[in-house]
């Protein structure tokens, strides 16, 4: 039986994977996810520890307050993403990646130095809305379900087609009447909101929050979730997020070697699975299986 705490971390990892995946499936290598994750976490930490009306003193932090935090964090992330998305998304490829990493670093330094974010120690004793990991697991799974469904639906509609077209050839897409700037901005904003919501849950779950929660390594690690899991379907980043979050934890018994092995996994994975774990062919294969299994199940 896997430790429920680890399960929560895995689900949060899957959510971050989806956040990186959304812009990437439109060809945009945006690594801003940890920045918005940090924004969400600070929002939760500051509100729940600093605003008594929310009920932080109660034995269990009230769920409506948690929902309010989620709403506010999502709104703030969306506002920030809207404000910076226009100019930033004009950048392409590695330039976009570096600009978004810069953003994450700027935010990290701000969080480390601003008067109200608790410096290097950060903010601790964040109130708990659930009494055990199972509660967090439920909440995180619910969020993952909603976000996963959203991604699945988006892929089937006009927006998803536009994203795929932009990924393949942005210029041709714009000549087909697709408002590429708008599509890219939409994906960026949704991605930011997902990251911020994940940050809110994570801050409560971890009980403390500091500037280390959104750093450059996290940018690449979350990208690894997507690449490792597969960047051609929304199931990919979920698989990658779950797996790559679990690996270092499951390796704890080997002690100091564990991060070395983790590094090896990251180096070797893309060589053997250049398309990630979940490939379009795999999905096609599964789809062929699906009705057959149903028929078998029905007597």
């Amino acid at each position: 039986m896997i430790d429920p705490t680890l399960l929560v971390q895995m689900v949060l990892g899957a959510l971050l994977g989806l956040s990186v995946y959304l812009p990437l499936s439109g060809g945009q290598l945006s690594l801003a996810t940890p920045g918005f994750y940090a924004i969400g976490g600070y929002m939760a930490a500051l509100l729940s520890t600093g605003w008594p009306a929310l009920g932080g003193a109660a034995p269990l932090y009230p769920l409506p307050s948690l929902l309010l935090e989620l709403g506010l964090a999502g709104a703030l992330a969306a506002a920030v993403a809207l404000a910076i998305g226009g100019p930033v998304l004009k950048l392409r490829g590695i330039y976009l990646a570096i600009a978004t990493i810069s953003l994450v670093e700027i935010l990290r330094v701000l969080n480390l130095n601003l008067p109200f974010t608790g410096g290097a120690v950060g903010i601790f004793a964040i109130p708990q809305p659930f009494s055990d990991p199972a509660g967090y697991l439920g909440a995180a799974l619910l969020l993952l379900l909603l976000v996963g469904l959203l991604c699945q639906r988006l892929e089937g509609m006009r927006f998803g087609r536009a994203q795929a077209a932009i990924r393949d050839d942005e210029l041709a897409a714009s000549c087909m009447g697709i408002d590429t700037a708008r599509v890219k901005l939409t994906a960026f904003v949704i991605s930011a909101v997902i990251a911020a919501l994940t940050g809110v849950l994570s801050a409560h779950f971890l009980n403390t929050w500091n500037a280390r929660q959104g750093s450059f390594d996290a940018s690449i690690t979350t990208l690894a979730f997507v690449v490792f899991g597969g960047s051609r379907s929304w199931l990919g980043p979920i698989a990658g997020g779950l797996a790559l979050t679990a690996v270092p934890e499951l390796l704890r018994p080997i002690g100091d070697l564990r991060l070395i092995v983790y590094g090896l996994v990251i180096v070797v994975g893309p060589v053997f699975f250049p398309q990630g774990l979940i490939t379009p062919e795999l999905l096609k294969g599964l789809a062929r299986w699906w009705p057959w299994r149903q028929r078998e199940a029905a007597p």
Binding site: L150, R153, G156, M157, R158, R161, A162, A164, A165, R167, D168, D169, L171, A172, A173, M176, G177, I178
Partner: peptide, 30 residues
């Protein structure tokens, strides 16, 4: 400059979407 990784029909569907604005809720809920 085709959308190389997409199926042939999707290449055309991308173009057909100019007229395909639809209520978001309906699309999300299929």
């Amino acid at each position: 400059r085709l959308f190389d990784s997409l199926p042939v029909i999707e290449n055309v569907l991308v173009g057909l979407h100019h007229a395909a604005r639809q209520p978001l809720a309906g699309a999300l809920l299929a």
